[in-house]
Amino acid sequence: MQMGCKINSNPTTLIKFSTKTAIVFSSFNPLQPGPRIRPVTSTFSSHNQNQQEPVTTSPTTTTQTKLPKPENYSVKFKTLRGCKLGISRYPDFEYNAEGGTGTGTGLKSDSGLPNEISVSFDLQTLYIPPLASSTTKFLGLPLPPFLKIDIVPELFQGTINEETGKVDLEFKARFWFSVGKIYRAPPLVVETMLTSEESNGKMRKGRGTKLDREGKCRLVGVATVVPINDVFMNSFLGLPTECLADLNAIISVSCSS
């Protein structure tokens, strides 16, 4: 009786050593000394698994917000005829201030009002005519030729609202009273708010008018005048007392930027 052994021709045994590499053992062949080993490499190499995808970084764009430049303004001031100056209980002086000038600069006010401008006048350019016989009358008569009151401004600044026409300007000046070369008194310091609204004191009061389309306005201000180191002036004017400034003026504002 013939006996035989059947061996599968292509059996394979797969041993997996790792997820990366597998070794295939071919079927046993008695004509060969040993099994043939054929490495099979995974389709994903260790290099591919360990390698990280490059990260693409887009360039950072810095956006700078430019703040709007503040608008600059040029301001011109002129005094006109029809002004008044009064002190104590004396009647007002009729004052022709025509020829007075001044220039200044302005910026948008930080008050929050869109049409309000903060202005400051250059004292080097500010000139207000003196009270003299050619400019001033008292009780309908010109001042005596030897009598003169010079006005020297020390501060002139405030706000102008182009929409409402309201004007508020801080004004400080020294008034120098002199009689020829014979007598010159210490200066009277006058400090007030010149306004296009109303200004009221205990003795004096005035009402201004707002800017019109031509820039014309009337500015009034009541101030307290304190005593000075001069017995004659203190008694003559009854210091301390109040004085009233009533100026007819033109203010023009133009954008310079």
Rank of each mutant, 00 (worst) to 15 (best):
residue 31 L to V: 03
residue 35 P to E: 05
residue 40 V to W: 10
residue 56 T to Y: 06
residue 147 L to I: 14
residue 66 K to A: 15
residue 23 I to G: 01
residue 48 N to E: 12
residue 116 E to N: 09
residue 90 Y to I: 01
residue 27 S to K: 13
residue 34 G to R: 10
residue 141 L to F: 09
residue 61 T to K: 11
residue 146 F to R: 10
residue 123 L to M: 14
residue 75 V to C: 07
residue 146 F to S: 13
residue 73 Y to S: 02
residue 40 V to S: 13
residue 144 P to F: 10
residue 107 L to G: 08
residue 123 L to I: 13
residue 107 L to V: 15
residue 134 S to N: 12
residue 115 N to I: 07
residue 144 P to T: 08
residue 143 L to I: 02
residue 111 S to I: 06
residue 123 L to V: 08
residue 142 P to F: 06
residue 42 S to R: 00
residue 53 E to T: 14
residue 46 S to W: 08
residue 51 Q to I: 10
residue 96 N to G: 02
residue 54 P to R: 07
residue 64 Q to N: 14
residue 63 T to P: 00
residue 17 F to H: 13
residue 139 L to A: 09
residue 135 T to L: 04
residue 135 T to C: 01
residue 16 K to R: 15
residue 51 Q to G: 07
residue 106 G to K: 09
residue 56 T to I: 11
residue 73 Y to G: 03
residue 85 L to S: 02
residue 21 T to P: 03
residue 63 T to C: 03
residue 34 G to D: 11
residue 97 A to G: 04
residue 55 V to E: 10
residue 100 G to T: 12
residue 69 K to C: 07
residue 99 G to Q: 13
residue 144 P to K: 10
residue 138 F to D: 02
residue 133 S to M: 10
residue 25 F to V: 15
residue 109 S to E: 12
residue 87 I to C: 01
residue 131 L to Y: 02
residue 147 L to C: 10
residue 146 F to G: 01
residue 99 G to K: 13
residue 60 T to G: 03
residue 32 Q to K: 14
residue 42 S to G: 15
residue 98 E to C: 00
residue 120 S to I: 03
residue 81 R to A: 15
residue 73 Y to A: 02
residue 29 N to R: 11
residue 52 Q to E: 06
residue 88 S to N: 04
residue 122 D to T: 07
residue 74 S to D: 09
residue 40 V to I: 15
residue 81 R to T: 15
residue 109 S to R: 13
residue 72 N to G: 06
residue 70 P to K: 05
residue 96 N to T: 01
residue 127 Y to F: 15
residue 35 P to Y: 12
residue 48 N to P: 00
residue 116 E to L: 13
residue 33 P to A: 12
residue 43 T to C: 01
residue 91 P to W: 03
residue 130 P to C: 07
residue 141 L to V: 12
residue 95 Y to V: 01
residue 94 E to M: 04
